[in-house]
Write a protein that binds this DNA or RNA. Structure first.
Lengths: 222, 222
DNA sequence: CATCATTGGAAACAATTGTTTGAATGTTCC
DNA sequence: GGAACATTCAAACAATTGTTTCCAATGATG
């Protein structure tokens, strides 16, 4: 019989799945511990609190991701030796880094749902935690995007990046439901890699879209 | 002194705000009733259960929205007398309909966050409720989009519409946080209408993006 | 006047929550 | 072996949850 993973890993594995399925508040520690076949107190013993468990679930993905992404960006910058890295390559690199980490554990879908939850579930502590721990890698990325799209006003680029972030997170986090519909209506099985392939031209076109008409002059308050 | 709205309205108003701020599970009935200054039992008396209250909050937006949207589409179809309605006009009409309803109560932001929650918080009953009650409007809309984009394969259009749905919901539901950043970093106050203005060219470009390269032939399983 | 739906208040309900405790067990190292 | 430490376990804790009940007051409707 295969050796059981240790308690900490079992808790993380189970918590990850349940959080992704139901959200944080809707998943009790008893749900987790019973499904993981560990004692209830084990969570507080190993992680201290439910909050910390949530953060630990994210850290297990984001720590290797940031390492990998930084390395990939290093390589990319070396290849272009001080020059500008084209937007397509930046996006490609990001997509590859995001896909690689959870691919090792066949949990891409779960990770995407977690990312979606991190944004949507108001859980203030999580947003703060992610921002503080992993903000720098995104700052680096957006700076490279800035150089790749010099014609875009800063504010416009900021918003478009978040538009695309929404596209990706929303789609991949709701993937199961959407996949069912797509398969039923178009008889087409969709893998995550198919989705990435479909996303590529859409994201590029969106980032390169013409600038919006300028805002109408605001009337002074009477 | 201004006449207090009746109990049902006070509950709905307060629940809407609190749900949008913290999510459904994180908002207790006692939170709602104490802030709304109504008795705890009033919720179960008027709505039956917390689930029904959640659905009622949504219905208060979606009922007038569907009426308005259907009417706007009727008008649009009449204008184009059997012909094809351009994609831009369809999107414009949708945006206008979405904006009009909550604008009357100055609660656009809250409504958007609610929409985001409806998708992200796994709350199965809510998704089912919305799908069953309001699915037909979206079916009608997507059919019109189909005629406006005949060059797109059906599956591709399906995915791109959901990409854009993600863009809009994600952005508008996280609006407060994003707005703070944008205002701090770019000294620019962003209204919802500004966002819609910025979204327009992005969404159009995304829908009209070139088709992705065909999927690589799948190797047969060995 | 009588009837009935609505409000308010307080209390209790049973269930579930995250967390803590203290004893039992296992593991490690001298 | 034995001391020191880490882990597991069942049980209990205090707090909060959605829901129900009972009773009194109110206001509108017939």
């Amino acid at each position: 019989m295969a050796q059981q993973p240790d308690t900490v890993t079992r808790i993380l594995d189970t918590a990850e799945v349940l959080f992704a399925e139901r959200g944080f508040a809707e998943t009790s520690l008893r749900n987790i511990t019973s499904k993981a076949k560990v004692n209830l107190a084990a969570v507080n013993y190993h992680f201290g609190s439910k909050k910390s468990l949530i953060q630990a679930v994210f850290a297990r993905y984001l720590d290797p991701f940031t390492v990998r992404f930084h390395a990939a960006l290093d390589e990319l910058e070396a290849d272009h030796a001080g020059g500008v890295i084209p937007l397509e390559e930046l996006l490609e690199t990001m997509a590859r880094s995001v896909l690689e980490v959870p691919a090792e554990r066949n949990s891409l879908k779960g990770f995407m749902r977690l990312l979606g939850l991190a944004y949507s579930q108001a859980q203030g502590h999580l947003r703060r935690y992610i921002q503080e721990e992993y903000g720098s890698v995104f700052t680096r990325f957006t700076e490279l995007v800035r150089r790749a799209t010099p014609e875009l006003p800063d504010a416009e680029r900021f918003w478009r990046l978040h538009f695309m972030l929404g596209t990706v997170i929303f789609t991949l986090s709701g993937l199961d439901a959407l996949r069912d519909i797509a398969e039923k209506d178009y008889g087409e099985h969709v893998s995550v890699r198919d989705l990435v392939r479909r996303l590529r031209p859409v994201v590029v076109a969106a980032m390169n879209a013409p600038l919006p008409e300028p805002a109408p002059a605001r009337r002074e308050a009477g």
